[in-house]
Design a binder for these strands. Structure first.
Length: 801
DNA sequence: GAATGGCCCGGCTGC
DNA sequence: CGGGCCATTC
């Protein structure tokens, strides 16, 4: 990629720049300033909903169109791949697809991965290096523990790994690490061994992606470093409040030659301290860079005045803020609804009821979001959404790429791509079972550790010796043959084809087929889906005029944030508050607003909880809402097997009374709501503000249904049917019209239900009978759409038409 | 050597 | 509550 002599098609360009000028004129004065002040350091403090994205895109468009900067000399760092995609998309319509395509837009990790591929040699990596994720790191460390004889009980692996991670985020390498305590000696030994294993495997972890580029940049004698230092003329970083030390050093190094560095952030929205982010970096930016221009965007265009007021109430009590005042001209809108619910089920039922009402009023589900503090809270919400037939998608959490079969297939692919990757080899060497047992594997690993060579090289060597028996040798030899043939195929076939063949040739397909269960069926489908996703990738890359590669696909998989999965399908989005950063929705439900849940309190006393960060997190959550916000809290919540009785979150009390309306579900029977006053005093519900008392809400049934003795069946069913959504309407099936405790089921059913009968359950919807257990109390095993098969007594079922 | 069942432990946020 | 690990059994 050479020089500045980039040739523009000026004529076609002029036409495009007119709408650009028109749009810049629409910006308010500080926005326009931030977009057009292009030279020298600039920090933009962009309040929530202040039109930040707009400013950034116009700024870039301005650089390209007015200042004629070649696009490949502009680097824009975003927080998620999705944000990068959106930015590119917007720029396409501003400056045209050709220019937008050559911009460097991406996350720190994606950008560094791309640069490393280009400069892998200088960075000391093989061409097909792989990126090890969390699980891979643990696998490596497991092996290190075994080799060094370290006791996992005394030194929990996670803790040691976490420590190494923390050091790397500060830019500390194994060589530079100075042990300061007894435990640190263990950390140091593991650190060295861990790095050695990664190097041997031609692998990097997430931290390495950044560190290795940084090392190049900061090496004055490296040619690649010199190239990188001159590469970008303009550097722009979004969500700057969440950068860590390494990222900051990267940014500074990229911008060192020109000082054209623009950072955009909001210290009030800094929510990744636990990941090494340091708010002080954005706060001190203008001190670090002499002559920094400071712009503050303080007008909120996104939310109603009530939502803004609630958000300000929460963030106003934070310490250490850069002084700024968010304001809005928007109409007040509806008050923020704070709703007390009885339990997490009641809470979920309430959310579902409200969502249903919105959808009935023609609100697109895509404009509705449900937030929670931790993923564990999503399960109940999901169950109710499914039962209610409400279209939803969960962002993040353990999903597709965490499934065993997907990881297996990916491991095969990674091993084919990078023979040195021991973690991957170990994962699949006996999956499907091919008679290479634990003992054999241990021997090979020991030999590899002894010789310091990757397993791929060790296995053929072992075959020459008598370390393993003849049966083991035979099994190993056929495994080697398999991998070799796959690798040969990879040289010619496109990745998706390779993957498809792999499923068959590895024996994986037969292995799953042999197990004739519904589950293995689903796993096979998952594999097909993965193959499909590879094909999708190929089509996409080909459309961009590039060559799809296995490495490229694998890298995309490892770097794709879960938030990025968010499709624009008309579905309700459910996600953690962290994942919600940078997004906005018309209608937002913020759930689990109880002390200890949000603000979150860790069970682990050694972890210092950070109340300030929790507060900022709450601020982020609230400011995602455009039109209306519901804040729900439950009196009791089952979490990790125990029931917790929680007081409403302190953040609720921090919202100004005038902006908030308090309600309760009927199932919430507690005498009075208890709110923690700012001074810590409890007082009653806030009905003293001149508003009439909230109407009785109708989403919960008046009295809980009497539980009949001996009615316990499958636990989930029991809970579901006694929860408050039993009478909810649903689209395909209307349970409210089903008699609740009719006998017909049992009587009728005896004759009319059998294998394959379509039946209905008031909570699970429609399903198919897999098996019938006739007896005293006939029970059927039923598979409902979207659920794992459940055992249900016939009297709770009805024949579906 | 593989499959299955019990038990213990961790338990958040994520590139 | 659920995943991962280990011991037991086939």
């Amino acid at each position: 990629m050479s020089g500045d002599d980039f040739d523009f098609d000026v004529d076609s360009f002029e036409e495009e720049s007119d709408p650009l000028q028109a749009s810049i004129d629409e910006l308010n004065p500080p926005q326009a300033e931030a977009a057009s002040h292009v030279d020298g350091p600039l920090v933009v403090f962009a309040g929530a909903g202040s039109g930040k994205t707009r400013v950034i895109t116009y700024r870039i468009a301005n650089l390209l169109a007015v200042h004629r900067v070649p696009p490949y000399r502009v680097l824009a760092v975003t927080f998620t791949n999705k944000a990068a995609g959106e930015m590119r998309h917007r720029l396409e319509s501003l400056v045209g697809p050709e220019l937008a395509r050559d911009l460097w837009v991406g996350t720190f990790h994606a950008t560094c991965a791309r640069l490393l591929r280009r400069h892998h040699e200088a960075a000391g990596l093989g061409k097909s290096f792989v990126v090890y994720d969390d699980a891979d790191q643990r696998a490596v460390m497991n092996r290190v523990y075994k080799a060094l004889g370290i006791d996992d009980k005394r030194y929990p692996l996670r803790q040691i790994l976490g420590r190494i991670h923390k050091e790397k985020q500060e830019g500390v390498t194994a060589a530079e690490f100075v042990p300061g305590s007894f435990v640190d000696d263990v950390v140091a030994r593991c650190f060295h061994a861990y790095e050695a294993h990664l190097a041997q495997a031609n692998a990097v972890d997430f931290d390495d992606l950044l560190l290795r580029v940084l090392r190049l940049l900061e090496n004055p004698t490296s040619e690649a470093g010199e190239e990188l230092r001159r590469k970008f003329r303009y550097v722009l970083v979004d969500e700057f409040q969440d950068v860590n030390q390494v990222q900051y050093r990267l940014v500074r190094a990229f911008a060192a030659s020109t000082r054209n560095l623009c950072v955009v952030g909001d210290d009030d929205q800094s929510i990744y301290r636990w990941r090494g982010a340091d708010v002080r970096i954005v706060r001190n930016f203008s001190r670090d860079f002499e002559g920094t221009k400071v712009v503050k965007l303080e007008q909120n265009y996104r939310s109603t005045a009530n939502v803004v007021a609630a958000a300000l109430g929460v963030i106003g009590r934070a310490r250490d803020r850069i002084p700024k005042e968010l304001w809005t001209q928007n109409p007040p809108g509806r008050p923020v609804h704070v709703v007390q619910t009885a339990s997490e089920r009641d809470e979920a039922a309430f959310v579902a009821e409200q969502v249903r009402a919105l959808v009935r009023d023609d609100v697109s589900p895509a404009q509705i979001a449900v937030f929670y503090r931790v993923h564990a809270q999503s399960r109940v919400l999901e169950e109710v959404m499914r039962a209610e037939r409400l279209p939803y998608q969960v962002i993040g959490g353990t999903k597709f790429f965490d499934r065993a079969e997907i990881k297996d297939l990916l491991s095969y692919l990674r091993l084919v791509d990078n023979p040195q990757s021991d973690v991957d080899l170990l994962r699949i060497i006996n999956v499907p079972p091919r008679k290479i047992g634990a003992t054999t594997v241990e021997k090979i690993v020991a030999e590899a550790d002894r010789s310091g060579r990757p397993l791929t090289e060790t296995i053929p060597a072992v075959l020459e010796t008598n370390l393993v028996g003849s049966a083991g040798k035979k099994a190993l030899a056929s495994f080697v043959k398999l991998v070799d043939s796959l690798r040969a195929r990879a040289a010619t076939a496109p990745p998706s084809e390779l993957a498809r063949d792999l499923v068959a040739e590895s024996g994986y397909r037969d292995w799953l087929l042999a197990d004739d269960s519904a589950e293995s069926d689903a796993r096979l489908q998952n594999l097909e889906e993965l193959v499909g996703s590879i094909a999708e990738y190929e089509a996409e890359i080909a459309a961009a005029g590039e060559l799809p590669t296995l490495s490229g696909y694998l890298e995309r998989v490892s770097l794709t944030a879960m938030t990025d999965e968010l499709k624009d399908a008309p579905k309700i989005s459910m996600m953690t508050v962290h994942a919600a950063k940078g997004l906005e929705f018309d209608f937002v439900f913020l759930t689990g607003m109880e002390e200890d849940t949000f603000p979150f309190r860790s069970q682990d006393p050694s972890r210092d909880d950070d109340d300030e960060e929790e507060r900022r997190l709450a601020y982020v959550a609230i400011t995602r809402a455009r039109t209306q916000l519901w804040v729900t809290h439950a009196e009791r919540r089952s979490i990790f097997g125990t029931t917790r009785y929680g007081l409403p979150s302190r953040f609720i009390a921090d919202m100004p009374r005038a902006a908030v309306q308090h309600d309760k579900t009927e199932a919430s029977q507690s005498s009075e709501g208890r709110f923690i006053d700012r001074e810590g005093w409890a007082f009653g519900p806030r009905r003293d503000d001149g508003r009439p008392p909230a109407p009785k809400l109708a989403w919960s049934r008046p009295t809980p249904e009497p539980r009949q003795a001996g009615e316990r069946f499958v636990e989930a069913e029991d809970e579901a049917s006694s929860s408050s959504f039993g009478r909810r309407r649903s689209v395909e099936l209307d349970p409210s019209e089903l008699p609740e405790h009719t006998t017909p089921a049992t009587k009728l059913l005896a004759g009319s239900i059998g294998r394959g009968t379509r039946v209905a359950h008031k909570s699970f919807g429609v399903g198919v009978v897999l098996e019938l257990d006739e007896g005293e109390d006939p029970t059927a095993t039923v598979r409902f759409t979207g659920w794992t098969p459940k055992r249900i007594k016939l009297r709770f079922l009805h024949v579906a038409e």
